[in-house]
């Protein structure tokens, strides 16, 4: 019971504070595509893969007092910061989550920008297409982000790096 909530809390235990809802969405999507057992379903939206279930679950965790949400003003928009609370830690101590390699992957992803993670998640969303077709999709659908071919290469390299991290400690 509440296992899916516990898995999300474990992410914050591993990665520490996560700044930005978009970043959190992309981190969970990427992890799911790397076969971490997150159950939230994603669809492609205007800004890339997005899960309403994930948004709702985070709101539930905030309302339970297991996650702390802080809003800050950033120019013309709001940005949200999320961190595990002591009550959340206590919940995790009772509801243990076993996801090998989670720490390394999430610490690494948390060090990346939301913009880059958006590109990585978009590449993963179109992983059934060739690299040329993915490039066309990225440059068409994400034209306002002005991604470059070099960034696209970096995204592919980053996915390989994350895959290595998940394989090194797989049971």
């Amino acid at each position: 019971m509440l296992k899916d909530h516990a898995k999300l809390l474990q992410v914050f235990l591993s990665a520490g504070e996560i700044i930005g809802r978009k970043k959190l969405q992309k981190m969970i999507y990427i992890a799911k595509k790397l076969s971490f057992p997150f159950q939230e379903r994603f669809q492609f939206h205007f800004y890339g893969p997005y899960s309403e279930e994930l948004t709702l679950r985070v709101e539930e965790l905030c309302n339970m007092g297991f996650l702390q949400e802080e809003m800050e003003q950033k120019g013309g928009y709001h940005q949200y910061r999320y961190a595990l609370t002591p009550a959340g830690r206590e919940f995790l101590a009772v509801n243990k989550v076993d996801m090998p390699c989670l720490d390394e992957c999430f610490i690494d992803m948390n060090g990346q920008s939301a913009r880059f993670l958006e590109l990585v998640s978009t590449v993963l969303y179109f992983n059934s297409l060739s690299k040329e077709e993915v490039a066309e999709k990225v440059f068409t659908l994400k034209s306002k982000q002005n991604y470059t071919l070099e960034e696209l290469d970096e995204a592919y390299q980053y996915i390989e790096k994350l895959k290595t991290k998940t394989q090194t400690k797989a049971p």
Partner: peptide, 24 residues
């Protein structure tokens, strides 16, 4: 026979103002 059911289990979505480019 013992089940916790949460609102996130049924994601009929509310209106969201699209902060941080989540949704349009």
């Amino acid at each position: 026979y013992l089940v916790v059911d949460s609102s996130s289990d049924l994601p009929y979505d509310f209106y969201r103002p699209g902060e941080e480019e989540e949704r349009l």
